[in-house]
Amino acid sequence: MAQPLEIQKKQYKKLVDEIKPRPPLIRNTLGAFIFGGLIALIGQFLLSFFQGQGLSVNDAGTATSATLIFLAALFTGLGIYDEIAKYGGAGTIVPITGFANSMVSPAMEYRTEGLVLGVGARLFTIAGPVLVFGIFSAWLVALLYYFFR
């Protein structure tokens, strides 16, 4: 242990990288593809169904999102969503259902801290940043569009 700390840190990082198991890339990407694809497929069935009911393309789209969000909230509440996510990985994060899961899961857990500062605040733990950056970037795009169209 006589070496300078910086060198020790570098050597240790090398050792950690050598021993640390790599993520099972093929299994993970396959899982993401299948589960992400399946959720999109369910979305497509809902979309086609709503369009068949006479809804416009846009309305059918929002109805689909709302239904998927409902299902994700339900599955999160039942404790099933995180079990699926073990295999689905990003396949269960990227779809709108992952957004819903990221709202419900902290809100549910912080129920013990009350309705306002527990549920109300924690619904937006992850949804908050998503809305902030989504709204801000869309506003910026519109501003550019306004000045440069």
Binding site: S65, A66, I69, F70, A73, L74, T76, G77, F99, A100, M103, V104, A107, M108, R111, V119, G120, L123, A127
Partner: peptide, 11 residues
């Protein structure tokens, strides 16, 4: 939808 269903699920 996310706020409503999220709140209800949490409750």
């Amino acid at each position: 939808a996310a706020v409503i269903f999220g709140y209800l699920a949490a409750i």
